[in-house]
């Protein structure tokens, strides 16, 4: 464990808490893409299958349970409890266009052709594009509540910090995983234009308005 990975995991937990608080407090999931939340739940389900078979550390297991539980709770709140506030019209990204390519790619490019490894690889590829329905929805609505933009900033920062963690691990432990690094770079790049808008607008108290 290093400071970059710890900061990244905390940013990740922070993003999930912001989202759950936003939905719970406002009793609304307006502006949130349910499809992205379904993809995130799928990412954790396919990545943390080893929760019961491989014990890495208490921290590792607690965080996995936290991510699985929170993503399940978010999907439940969006599609069941506050389904009336779910903006189905603007959440129109075709997620099969993400699921199929990630599945095919994970069958072609992986470290080892076993069920667990291919599912882990699928989850890594899927996570890198899971935010697309959310970014697509923000671009369609042309704006995002500031709480949603804080959520996106924390979520984008998590994988950006993981990139630093991988640099650190390569230098210090000469450990690296090209699949995770490649997907992490793609994932972080997808947030770049949002990061720019967030820093130039939201931090100055303006609303996040995308150029129409």
């Amino acid at each position: 464990m290093n400071i970059f990975r710890l900061a990244g995991d905390l940013a990740h937990v922070f993003a999930i808490i912001i989202l759950l608080l936003k939905i719970w407090k406002t009793r609304s999931c307006a502006g949130i893409s349910g499809k992205s939340q379904i993809l995130f739940a799928l990412v954790y389900l396919t990545r943390y299958l080893d929760l019961f078979t491989t014990y890495v550390s208490l921290y590792n297991s607690v965080m996995k349970v936290l991510f699985l539980a929170s993503s399940g709770a978010t999907v439940y709140l969006m599609y069941v409890k506050f389904r009336a506030t779910y903006d189905r019209n603007h959440d129109s990204f075709r997620i099969e266009f993400l699921l199929v390519p990630c599945l095919l790619l994970s069958l072609l490019i992986n470290h080892e052709f076993t069920v667990m490894e291919v599912l882990w690889t699928f989850s890594i590829y899927l996570e890198s594009v899971a935010i697309l329905p959310q970014l697509f929805m923000v671009s369609k609505t042309g704006e995002a509540e500031s709480i949603t933009s804080h959520y996106l900033f924390a979520l984008g920062s998590y994988r950006a910090l993981y990139l630093l963690n991988w640099v650190y691990r390569y230098i210090v432990e000469s450990h690296y995983d090209l699949i995770a690094i490649f997907a992490g770079i793609v994932q972080t790049i997808l947030y770049c234009d949002f990061f720019y808008l967030y820093i130039t607008k939201v931090l100055k108290g303006k609303k996040l308005q995308l150029p129409a």
Binding site: R5, H12, V56, S57, K64, H111, T114, E117, Y162
Partner: peptide, 10 residues
Amino acid sequence: PGEYSKKDEL
């Protein structure tokens, strides 16, 4: 790598 390499990252 041989057996399912232990993933220590989240």
